[in-house]
Each structure stands twice: as structure tokens, then as C-alpha cells.
Amino acid sequence: MDDGQQTVSWGRQLARQALLIAVSAVTLYPVLWVVKLAVSPQASMGGGFNPLPTGFTLAHFERVLTARDTLGNLLFPIQLANSLTVSIATTLVGIVLSTTAGYAFSRFDFPGKDAGMKAFLVTQMFPGVVMAVPLYILMDELGLLNSMAGLTLVYSTTSVPFSVWMLKGYFDTIPRDLEEAALVDGASQWTIFTRVILPLATPAIVVTGLFSFMTAWNEFILAATFLSGERHMTLPTVLYGYVDENSTDWAPFAAGAILVSLPVMALFFVLQRHLVGGLTAGGVKG
């Protein structure tokens, strides 16, 4: 890798770096603005184009982290727990359901297979908001309003179909020879799934898992519809509370936004090596 770089001429090297700096600047500009709002003591939306902070304080973070309800209980840990519960549950439900379903759609023939895949696709064509009202009625009937289980169910209805499609597509690329070899070796169908197919599908599972997690972690509209009361809220709805019609408190909003982004950034950082696929290389042929 390093050798390759040294052979690039100075001119090209310069042009490449300039381009990268430009792209980084464009990407980071809004982020810097959020940071500026979050750490500047006198935060305001004004101040021209300068994205650099005009001072430094952690007061806004403190305000977000130490918000209390009327009884004096800390809210942030509860709300963080809500968000984590819903997101992790959605991810787990999504992975369990969509790996098994995706595998079945990829490998088995059964009545309704094509119709099933198309139905999954159709659900992806409607934005979540369209479903908000019917889902609200359903959740109400089921007594799942204002519960993390209900919200998990709702999020799963959007994330599972996508994940099934993704994973089915990935399973399709895993050669059948591998399964037949395992069958002859003596593995049961379940062993083949868990010991051969799932390990090979790790990159796709990581991607779909990350997708499910982020869908649930960032989602606002449905959460705002189904949840009420500070103690039941997830973090995006909490953030919105800082900039509703009564007040536009951008500083705590920005501080909160940074806090909310951290777990996702950490996840990406941890999982990035899995995101680069290609685990099946070398199994069959040359």
C-alpha cells in the first residue's frame, strides 16, 4: 500500500490532498456548527459563517444530562435506557427474524415465496408517517402504546423487510456447493445454517444490524406519536423538546445531538472492519 503511494507524482499527490481537504471541510462544516453551539457559552444561531466556538463550556451538556422531572428524578439515564432498549431489541429481533427468513427465501421452495418477497417490498414503499395512524390504532387495541415493546414491534415492521431482502440477496451469493459439502459431511440443516451460512454472512448481518439499530435510534415521528410522558421518551423526542414552539434552545439541543450521535459513531468505529465484505473469497474455485 505504502509503496503504491510513493510512486504517485507530487502533482497528483497535491491534487488528491486538496480534494480530500475540501470534501472533509464540506462534510465537517455542519458538524462543527453543532459543536460550536454546544460548547459556546453565548450560543446563538448568528455569528456569521465562522464555525469555530467562541469560548468553551460544558454547561449545556450538564443541562441535558441533569434534566429532572417534577419529582426530581434524573431523566437522561431513563431516556437513554429507553433508546437503547428499543434499538437493541429492534436489532436483535431484526437479525433473528431476517437471517432465518432470508435463508428460507434464498434456499427453499414453498408456496407464496414470490408473493412474500413482493409483499416485503411493498411495505418499504410507504414512509413511516403514512402508517402512523393505522399503527396507532393497532397499538392502542393491543395495549402497547407508550411501551418499549410496542415501539420495538413498530420499528421491526420497517427494518425486518429491508433486512430480509438484504440478507436473501447475500445468501444467494453463497455457493450451494458449500451446503451440499456440509450435508455430505454430516451436518444437519440447522448446523449448516449456524456453522456455515451465518459466519459467511457476517458482513451482511452487520450491515443490516447497524441499519436496524440506527433506524430505531434515530426515529422521531413514530416515537413522538406513540410515546407520552418524559419518563417514556426516547432521546430523539427529548431533543425535540428543546426546540419546540415554546422555546428554541439551540445550545442544549446541540449538546444533546452530540450525545445521541456518540453511540452510533462508536458502533461504526467498532464494526467498520466487518463492513468490508468478501468473507466468501477462496472457498470455491480459484
Binding site: P175, D177, L178, E180, A181, A182, L183, V184, D185, G186, A187, V196, P199, L200, L279, T280, A281, G282, G283, V284, K285
Partner: peptide, 19 residues
């Protein structure tokens, strides 16, 4: 079932488990 036939097969593609 294949597993109970006491056979072993070598595939043209080799079909080695990549992981």
C-alpha cells in the same frame, strides 16, 4: 440422507468452508 450413506464427495469447486 447423505450423512448416513457413509460416502465422501469431492466437488469440482472444492467447496471448502472459507471461514
Amino acid at each position: 440422507a447423505p450423512r448416513d450413506r457413509d460416502i465422501a464427495m469431492v466437488f469440482q469447486s472444492y467447496a471448502l468452508y472459507p471461514h
